[in-house]
Design a protein around this nucleic acid. Structure first.
Lengths: 210, 210
DNA sequence: AACATATTGACAATCATTTAACAGAATTGT
DNA sequence: ACAATTCTGTTAAATGATTGTCAATATGTT
């Protein structure tokens, strides 16, 4: 992997490319040009070519890009060819909703355990997985080779819990708590701040061009 | 409102400022300089000043920014001083989780109705709100002055449903379906593509600096 | 009241991203 | 087999975002 420093803007666009290429593949399309893809996705063809070239040229002059090949290459770049074990920390509504959402499993994100600090929830079954008490988190993570923790607890305990997770050895935290975590540089944090998103939407309504 | 064109990058940062200012306010802090805020939030002081200046100068030389005033001004910019009525379309796990999450209501986002096309779910009670069949969506939206629809249905029906919602007169769609909606320019769409987020996280793990 | 200090707003400089342009390679059609 | 066409990869230009600097202005101190 020539792992220079690819800009975050490019990385953030890859999942969308991946989605469109998957659709094309499912429709039996074998090849596509940057121009046609640009029309489909409503971005410039130049950006598409520029983006893919960060990963040393998947296309061919006069032909375009092979859909299936490109699809698979992007999967590799995104690490979707590897399996990831994950635990959900926080078995509230959101935690349970994520656990019940099957599609992540199909992409290789395997839910190994669900944890909560509320004894009332422990033992409850969520899609065949029993909710355990957070006391057992550390042992479980080590034993089950977990690399991703999904943090779906209220913001009050999130920073502390994140620190525990890091100590247990997780490599990445998918953070749904509405707070900035404080973890070492080598830990990957991906934030999903739903209320931020809703506020942006609200801004859009109020400041509509019309 | 001098409503020039403020960059999306700035808007995207406002909710985070708002969160930090709220915390400061709750801790009884009355004023803060861009420098102190920069240390707290780990962004440059220059960016903070630049950002706030898009909205014509909330600060004062030699003093800094008044926390409460700034907090309230950002709320206004984000439209949080206005109430928004919303409906949730899709009463699956995610739809129910969002309905159960009280905090949005505190910010003025009032859940007026929940809809699903599955007759089996209709009548089910979610936090005091009965799930209705989508047939009743149009009438309900008009009668209840709904301006935001939360779209939590599988991607297959999402594009069609979004078109219906637009016809019914919603101003904005908070889209959790994993597909790009096709709506007129004056309709605000805020996407929350959870699998995209998870893929970015996966990229981070695989291409870790370490 | 005068001086030292703090701190913004504005502008300039740097850095990053996006778009445009085009040479050159592969494909297609005749 | 040759010419016309289609496209990419690459380089250059344009645009946009972030950071650094500093004069101007307020506050705080003596």
């Amino acid at each position: 992997m020539d792992d220079k420093n690819i800009s975050q803007a490019v990385i953030a666009r890859l999942p969308r490319y991946y989605r469109y290429l998957g659709d094309l593949k499912d429709n039996g399309i074998e090849r596509i040009s940057s121009q046609d893809l640009s029309k489909l996705m409503k971005v410039t063809a130049s950006q598409i070519r520029q983006d893919f070239n960060n990963f040393c040229g998947f296309g061919q002059q006069g032909y375009g890009y092979n859909v299936e090949y490109l699809y698979n290459e992007i999967a590799k770049i995104l690490g979707l060819n590897e399996k990831h074990n994950l635990v959900i920390v926080g078995a509230g509504n959101l935690g349970q909703a994520l656990a019940n959402y099957m599609n992540f499993e199909r992409r290789g994100f395997l839910i190994k355990g669900i944890f909560d600090n509320n004894p009332g929830l422990c033992g409850k079954d969520v899609r065949g997985i029993g909710v355990q008490h957070v006391d057992k988190l550390e042992e479980f993570i080590k034993k089950n080779d977990v690399d991703i923790a999904v943090l779906t607890i209220p913001k009050e305990g999130a920073v502390k819990t994140a620190e525990v997770l890091v100590k247990c050895g997780v490599k990445a935290i998918w953070n749904f708590a509405h707070v900035d975590l404080n973890v070492p540089d080598n830990i990957v944090v991906e934030n999903v701040h739903l209320s931020d998103s809703l506020m942006k939407l609200s801004y859009g309504i109020v400041n509509k061009k019309q």
